[in-house]
Design a protein around this nucleic acid. Sequence first.
DNA 1: GGAATGCTTCGACTATGGTCGAACTATGAA
DNA 2: TTCATAGTTCGACCATAGTCGAAGCATTCC
Lengths: 218, 218
Amino acid sequence: MIGALIGDPARANMLTALMSGKALTASELAAEAGITPQTASSHLSKLEAANLTRQRKQGRHRYISLANDDVGGVLEALMGLAAKCGHVRARTGPRDPALRRARVCYNHLAGELGVRLHDSLKANGFVREEGEDIDLTDRGAAFVREFGIDLDALSTLRRPLCLSCLDWSARRTHLAGSLGTALLDRIYTLGWARREENSRVISFNRKGEQDFLKTFAV
Amino acid sequence: MIGALIGDPARANMLTALMSGKALTASELAAEAGITPQTASSHLSKLEAANLTRQRKQGRHRYISLANDDVGGVLEALMGLAAKCGHVRARTGPRDPALRRARVCYNHLAGELGVRLHDSLKANGFVREEGEDIDLTDRGAAFVREFGIDLDALSTLRRPLCLSCLDWSARRTHLAGSLGTALLDRIYTLGWARREENSRVISFNRKGEQDFLKTFAV
DNA sequence: GGAATGCTTCGACTATGGTCGAACTATGAA
DNA sequence: TTCATAGTTCGACCATAGTCGAAGCATTCC
């Protein structure tokens, strides 16, 4: 059963670290989980055997990342449930408010600003939401092209364009999928925000946040 | 961490069984998980402490259900990820079809027709249900008086007028309390049905069932 | 009243699996 | 070559917690 894999504290810590979307080495993950490399090695074999993670060997390094978006989504949902039930992991630091404001959820924007983006797209009729499915409208397609995204390139990917993802802190839906990733990349490119080192926090600078709020008005 | 709770095979089996949406007893869950009742009892305390499940004591039974939709959603996601086809065998209630159709529950009507009565009262705005509480509305009071029940006499009893009771076979709420008893008595008096000897079965005659279904329409 | 059922608590047993030390392989650098 | 780093495998240890038998409590049935 897959739950048992996620259940172990050490593995949970590693998976949480991988939620940043970055590929981490086995040693880094060991440090993150507070265990020795040999123990981590054992855990990583199991995670990989269950197809929760994927590895890429490069030289003498072994880079680990989550196997796919689904895994990230399930982990996010689990964290949300844990947060709601009051079983939040210890480790609540000063980063917490920033995390709530804007963070990376595997590869797309989450937190208050992530919800804001989703709501804005919906309010303006750029996406149509039906249950758990999200579809980009014609007007929405025009909008994202205008925003500077190569929509045709995204369409050729096998990955779904729009996916809904449940937010951990706000308990609201936000946008995942290849479009979600592309939007976040574009936000970096525009210089509105940057990733904090060793953290899931996304820091918007003053001007970037103003532009963001103006572009994605509700 | 919540993942550890879901991780254990026994608990996973129980939660899977509860995914049907029905409330199950502690013993049923023990059987479902293939463990003894005392082990199940221990697991259930933990699940409840973590707010994953909710219990409702009724008589000597303890009905367990998932705490909320979020829990179900996460479990669903996990199972989808595990690509595990959930063969959730729902073992529903009594084998005797007659018992399932209509029977006495202490002193009021239960079974499919009991659920029907409850649903009808609710659909017509005769009762208002809030959580586990049920209240008779003004229109409902008029209705039961019209049906031939001395409501004022019931009001003088110390016993609660309306109580919700969880159905044994259908696992749905139905009406208990002094009003539930009075309604069943009235059904006897009208000659719609009678108690079978040495059984909890209530036999409606053909005309009686027709009248019942017409009176308590949904 | 007594019998039967549903469930819990207690205590003891046991097995799974997480953990680390030590030794080993593999890649890269000097 | 020699050394250093990254990671693995092996073996042993041991704590956690899942398990059940026995006994007890609570409720309903007859």
